[in-house]
Design a binder for these strands. Structure first.
Length: 281
DNA sequence: ATCGAACCTCCAAT
DNA sequence: AATTGGAGGTTCG
């Protein structure tokens, strides 16, 4: 299946920019394989087109893929609202075509709870372990794989199960989040229809979710492009390039609000570029 | 309200 | 070879 982006799009920068954790390069490194919404997908890209091959035919098809990739985001417009400084301009040129993804909110929540005090390879291995231990096993034309587990499946697997596969102190948080959703019979996708502030407030209620993780979930899965996760890397960028001397004593959510005012309604896009640049330097 | 320490686990660097 | 420090944060005191 072929997708055409009207705007610059870089599949590689997007899939490996630290927002999604179930993508990998195959032996032929131009092929990227990932699992999205229980479907295995292989993606390649040339100058003008994005090629997708699905492991099996499900509800997840062309339309869903376009949404996942956020093909509709007009990067030229987004850049133009922010490219008022040298540092962002540099990042933008370096990673031209990097998009925010629209992921599943539940998977996104769990993976970013797992990101606390962790590094990317370990987050990936935890996501894989959770899937293989309690996610649904699926067979497709390429073989077998495991979908990311539902809240019910995680709930059933339990805190001890999660601890057993290496979640550590995060096991309690993930288990509790799952039980809350099962208990309340809520689908996190519903948060997409809320305002940024409302959804933020609701997300913070989950254990293991503070301002940073909540903003990641809002940005990468809930269509809130003004969300601005403040982590150690972004703090460094802001201090080194955007803020005056004594910014040390500004709390994280203070920095977040400052950045949202500074970068505007697409602040989350600025965040992703600045983060990516800082992380790879 | 604000601030530092503690938290599971895995590894890379002593 | 054993030990320490740190990793995209949050919670608890």
């Amino acid at each position: 299946m072929v997708l055409i982006s009207k705007f610059p799009y870089s599949i590689t920068e997007t899939l490996y920019s630290g927002q999604a954790f179930r993508w990998k390069k195959l032996e032929n490194p131009s092929v990227n394989e990932g699992i999205v919404e229980g479907t295995r997908i292989r993606v390649t890209q040339d100058e003008e087109k994005i090629y997708c091959e699905f492991g099996n035919s499900t509800a997840f098809g062309e339309d869903a893929m376009g949404k996942y990739l956020r093909l509709e985001d007009d990067l030229s417009l987004i850049y133009s609202e922010m490219s008022i400084d040298d540092y962002f301009n540099q990042a933008q040129k370096q990673y031209n075509g990097l998009h925010i993804l629209r992921q599943d909110p539940w998977e996104c929540l769990v993976t970013f709870i797992c990101s606390a005090n962790n590094n990317i390879p370990r987050i990936k291995s935890l996501v894989t372990a959770m899937s293989e231990n309690c996610g649904q096993k699926i067979i497709d034309q390429f073989g077998e794989f495991h979908a990311f587990p539902t809240p019910g499946e995680i709930f059933q697997f339990g805190e001890d199960g999660l601890r057993g596969i290496g979640l550590g102190f995060r096991a309690k948080y993930v288990a509790k989040a799952a039980s809350m959703l099962v208990e309340e019979e809520t689908d996190l996708k519903y948060y997409r229809s809320l305002s940024y502030e409302e959804a933020l407030e609701k997300l913070i209620r989950f254990p293991g979710v503070g301002d940073k993780v909540a903003n990641c979930v809002l940005l990468f899965s809930m269509d809130k492009l003004q969300a601005f996760p403040v982590d150690v890397w972004i703090k460094r960028v802001l201090r080194e390039n955007y803020l005056e001397g004594n910014s040390e004593n500004i709390p994280d959510n203070g920095l977040r609000v400052w950045a949202q005012n500074h970068f505007g309604r697409f602040a989350g896009y600025a965040n992703q570029y600045l983060f990516h640049k800082k992380r790879l330097t």
